[in-house]
Design a protein around this nucleic acid. Structure first.
Length: 502
RNA sequence: GGCGCCGUAGCCAAGUGGUAAGGCAGAGGUCUGCAAAACCUCCAUUCAGGGGUUCGAUCCCCCUCGGCGCCUCCA
């Protein structure tokens, strides 16, 4: 199947052709580690995690590099405020960031290089730019000359002169062009610094990605990703630096994810509509955040509706709660299949055969799912197909009793396999269902402020009333719990519950 | 000022030059002590509005209205 990705550089979907057959080299701009990761980071790194998972699943041998920018102005400033060193601050936030990513089920990249560990490569790249006449040295650092590269502006679709006219950049008379940017910054007293031919200092913002991507992936690697806000100037500058320093093509395909909007506006600190992954994961199961993000195509803005109380405090994320419910539905389907398999295995005689209608439906699902993902990672559409498969599984579980146990066993296994395949690509529904459902339940109870002990007590009282055929008393317990956001479900194995209130 | 994106049912959301996936909510049904879950059925003659191209447009072009983004640190 032809895999196609939208390339920002050409503004069109293109067939995915790698530099080397069967191998995909990917670099994604990682976080600057001076604060906790927010929902925007979640969105970006979930999107590229899906990219990597999908390519691996499609047979590519992927090398995925995602950096940590552990030294820059913000890190230095924040460390000073916190009374610590930039190194210690960065280390701490890298740790917290990795925890957040793990909760979102974002796989660890193959390489996670840090700027501070790649100074030789960075200095060499800057030196190459100076040698080739693309950079010039001032007393406070080395600057890249944007006028020296005639491809400048191609990625972001801008003309140098248009930007110059409207740019709100500081006018610095010493620079040859207002858009020239620092490759190397000479250190001020007290700042972290590394040796260089231009004095002790640190890299400018953009050069590290050029240096580290080349170090691990070489020239002309396959995909470079990041948020749309990085297109200009960050990625534009990376291209300029890399192409001018090496003379080779830098990247074959540029992929950018859309923003996170909170109540229709771009989430940003200045607007005060800013939420960290930790805050959201406090409100709902982290995997539900991932599922929610997957419901919108990665290039479109994703909306987060935030429920804010009259006093301005955060009440919750209704959309995330809905996603959590869908997640629970998904795990419930898996659990039903697992349980059915256990029962059927005892009864099945010989090799079974998946009933034709089921086999055909699963085949159609797998083709549709794959086609959606191959078409620029349309996870939202793929999720639509998955909904159909889940319904099919439940229907078969409910009504498939006329088939022989061996055939039913074959069908449930096949259904579970298809779901696992989809889950492995999307990074959802991969956990053990009982454990996941227990975690979702616990998160819900926390949300409505009820303890498990109180809930168990209420369920016990109702069970006693039911046993005594005092249905009025039993229904009162049900109503009370519903009032508190808990819904009871009587099943063959006892009473189960779920949290229904947002 | 320059560049660009978006506007699809109550809400979220995918999508295509040939007549609108999916989810949530809602209605009815099967099941149930009652419920819930699960399943079944229904739920946009219509894709902001107006022109145009076309045999045919929600999808292509133009205009209007509305919302947003980048050009400055940002995923």
């Amino acid at each position: 199947m032809d895999i196609r990705f939208y390339n920002t550089l050409t503004r069109s979907k293109e067939p995915f052709r790698t530099r080397e057959p069967g191998r995909a080299a990917i670099y994604v701009c990682g976080p600057t580690v001076y604060d906790d990761a927010h929902l925007g980071h979640a969105r970006a790194y979930v999107a590229f995690d899906v990219l990597v998972r999908f390519l691996r699943r499609s047979g590519f041998q992927v090398t995925y590099v995602r950096n940590y920018t552990d030294v820059d102005d913000k890190v230095i400033k924040r460390a000073a405020e916190a009374g610590t060193t930039p190194g210690e601050l960065a280390e701490r936030f890298i740790g917290r960031y990795r925890e957040d990513m793990a909760r979102l089920r974002v796989l660890e990249p193959d390489v996670t290089p840090r700027v501070t560990e790649h100074m030789p490569e960075i200095v060499a790249l800057v030196q190459a730019l100076v040698d080739r006449g693309h950079a010039y040295v001032l007393d406070d650092g080395v600057y890249f000359s944007v006028r020296s590269y005639n491809g400048y502006g191609r990625l972001s679709g801008r003309q140098l002169d248009d930007m110059k006219a409207g740019a709100r950049v500081d006018v610095d008379d010493r620079k040859q062009d207002p858009l020239d940017f620092a490759l190397w910054k000479v250190a001020k007293p007290g700042e972290p610094a590394w040796e260089s031919p231009w004095g002790k200092g640190r890299p400018g913002w953009h050069i590290e990605c050029s240096a580290m991507s080349r170090r691990y992936l070489g020239d002309g690697f396959d995909i470079h990703g990041g948020g749309m806000d990085l297109i200009f100037p960050h990625h534009e500058n990376e291209i300029a630096q890399s192409v001018c320093a090496t003379g080779a093509e830098f990247v074959r395909c540029w992929m950018h994810n859309g923003f996170v909007n909170v109540n229709k506006e771009k989430m940003s600190k200045s607007l005060g509509n800013f939420f960290t992954i930790r805050q959201a994961a406090e409100a709902v199961e982290a995997e539900a955040i991932r599922l929610y993000l997957l419901g919108t195509h990665y290039r479109s803005p994703v909306q987060f509706e935030v429920d804010v109380a009259e006093d301005g405090s955060l009440r919750g994320f209704p959309g995330l709660v809905e996603a959590e419910r869908r997640l629970a539905y998904g795990y419930d389907v898996v659990r039903r299949l697992v349980r059915a398999e256990a029962q059927l295995a005892a009864k099945a005689k010989g090799e079974g055969k998946v009933p034709d209608a089921v086999a055909q439906a699963i085949k159609t699902f797998e083709e549709s799912f794959g086609a959606s993902m191959a078409d620029d990672l349309n996870a939202a559409e793929a999720l639509g197909h998955l909904a159909g498969l889940q319904r099919l599984a439940n229907e078969f579980l409910d009504r498939g009793k006329e088939h022989a146990p061996a055939d039913r066993l074959a069908a449930t296994r096949r259904l579970r396999g298809a779901m696992a395949g989809a889950g492995a690509v999307l990074g959802v529904l991969e956990r053990e269902p009982d454990e996941a459902l227990r975690a979702i339940g616990a998160t819900g109870l926390r949300r409505v402020g009820m303890s498990e002990a109180d809930l168990d007590d209420a369920i016990g009282r109702r069970a006693a009333a039911r046993k005594a055929k005092d249905f009025a008393a039993a229904d009162r317990v049900r109503a009370e719990l519903l009032e508190q956001g808990i819904e009871l479900m009587d099943g063959p194995t006892g009473t189960e519950w779920r949290v229904v209130r947002a």
